[in-house]
Design a protein around this nucleic acid. Structure first.
Lengths: 153, 153
DNA sequence: TACTATATAGGGCTTACTCTTATATTCTTA
DNA sequence: TAAGAATATAAGAGTAAGCCCTATATAGTA
């Protein structure tokens, strides 16, 4: 019974995915579908490399480049998203005072801001047992003024 | 007057930095000091590459590897830190329901959790004009159970 | 001043990605 | 349902970030 439910759920998601592709003028290819399926079938926040390995069980000839490109496409059409901050070179910060970060997804710029209520977010108790938390922050992503000005022109 | 204050401030930080090095059994080298100075002299969250360019104005022969290593060292002794999530391969997430991420800084594992109060953090008004915010999340870093078990042994 | 431990420069290597191009596939519309 | 146009894919070369190794140099110490 459980299994049947799961299967139906996946079928529904796939249907929705195909619609989403078409609405965005994207073709529904076996590769795209397989990448999407692999991604929703895991909760491990995989890299392109890992997704590629999974997909190759079905489509052995798929290239890593296609997987990577497809994942990026999925993020663009809102069928998935990129885990915050990953995929960029390492960056450092010499400001040790309490502050938070905003990152522009177009130009990659990181801007400090400080909003006192964010300094001491309360961590739910059930996590405190599970992890040794060393850092907690509110992290914002979006488009900065410069980039939104450039885009609209 | 302002300038003088700034200079004193930097001097103080440098003094503190040297102490911090010694307390951690690290030698105070011109390279280390220069990297630290470059980092606290900017608010742009630079990559190792950028810090290297700045430092080379003083020490033209410094290698990128040294800069990178030094920045990592600064983070270890708490004289700086690494911007959350940067420096890792891109990762994707197919779960579109509201949730937040914890990332283990040892093994890199990313774990989902969900704490409803975090779903709709209020963004301060002064930021709403400045940025077009597309995503906001609470992001936690620390050490997971597996890793803290391994480390203690 | 000399000795020991640690740091650095340099260069080669790996990994994660990106770009280019020729071929293949989807979707449309006639 | 066949043909054409637009888009996607595979493959492979190219690039950027970061890591590792080793010989030399330097800081801290006694």
């Amino acid at each position: 019974m459980r299994e049947v439910m799961k299967k139906m759920d996946i079928e529904m998601k796939l249907r929705g995915f195909e619609d989403r592709c078409r609405h965005n003028g994207l073709k529904v290819t076996p590769q795209r579908t397989a990448v999407y399926k692999a991604l929703i079938g895991t909760d491990t926040h995989p890299t392109a490399e890992k997704v590629c390995k999974i997909v190759r069980q079905d489509i052995s000839s798929i290239s890593l480049d296609t997987v990577n490109r497809t994942l990026l496409t999925l993020a663009e059409i809102g069928a998935a998203f990129q885990v915050e901050g990953t995929g960029q070179p390492r960056r450092f910060d010499g400001g040790l005072e309490d502050h938070q970060h905003f990152r522009c997804i177009k130009c990659g710029k990181i801007v400090d801001f400080h909003y006192e209520p964010f300094d001491n977010i309360e961590i739910p108790v059930h996590l405190q047992g599970q992890f040794q938390i060393m850092r907690k922050t509110v992290y914002l992503e979006g488009i900065c003024q410069t980039c939104s000005a450039t885009t609209s022109s």
